[in-house]
Amino acid sequence: MIKIENVHKHFGGFRAVDGASLEIKEGSITGLIGPNGAGKTTLFNVIAGVLPPTSGVIKMAQTDITGLPPHELFAQGVLRTFQIAHEFGSMTVLENLMMVPGGQTGESLWNTWFHRKRIAQEEAELKERALDVLKFLTIDHLAEEKAGNLSGGQKKLLELGRTMMVDAKVVFLDEVGAGVNRTLLNTIADAIIRLNRERGYTFCIIEHDMDFISRLCDPVIVMAEGRVLAQGTAEEIKRNEQVIEAYLGTGIKNQKADGVNV
């Protein structure tokens, strides 16, 4: 689905992404893990068109999408969320969702005045869809709340909701679980699995919670120092000596030896 070929992103002398090559297969939930500063988020930013790559190519189903601006990627079904949840704080949750998708009829000055009916109809459909999404994410009681007042975890759900307003192809989730409690994390995990199975979304997830990763992701890709260190199923990754050295730490090996499930 998405193929990243030898992508570099340097900031002056600092090589944040240093020749990363990986593939995100269609229909998969790919996990992307690695120590802090491994270049995961930078790679996301490069894929999402926020930062231009220093060199390298990003392809989606054979077409080159390197350096396309975010709103054009969006039109092609490539979506992402942020590590720290973003929201339009002064708008309600419902309005936040209805902001997506772009290219609505009401978005031109001309139509605003002369196609009122079509806009009203479109907005009614959008509203219905947004309410469905909120119900799916179990936050429908917050529809009229200002998004700025939501808790961190609810904002994460709202971000996930944003991706459900359109028929996305690939969704990049940057630490969906950060700062989210267990119960909410389960809700998010269920939502991801359902979206993947029922609507055929492909996911690529950055996450530090190994439980979450092992539950959802196959394959798991490990990045370190701007490169891909290892790739495989969650179980293979947990046993990989290099990965344990660079990221998971020896604790996990000892626990394994003791027969504790991690």
Binding site: E87, F88, G103, T105
Partner: peptide, 27 residues
């Protein structure tokens, strides 16, 4: 009240997010 106005407010509020919601910045 209008969609155009809201996308302008969205853009003013959070440019990154507006772009990732598919709002065309040039428009």
């Amino acid at each position: 009240k209008t969609r155009t106005g809201k996308s302008m407010r969205a853009f003013s509020d959070n440019e990154d997010l507006a772009l990732l919601s598919g709002i065309n910045p040039e428009k």
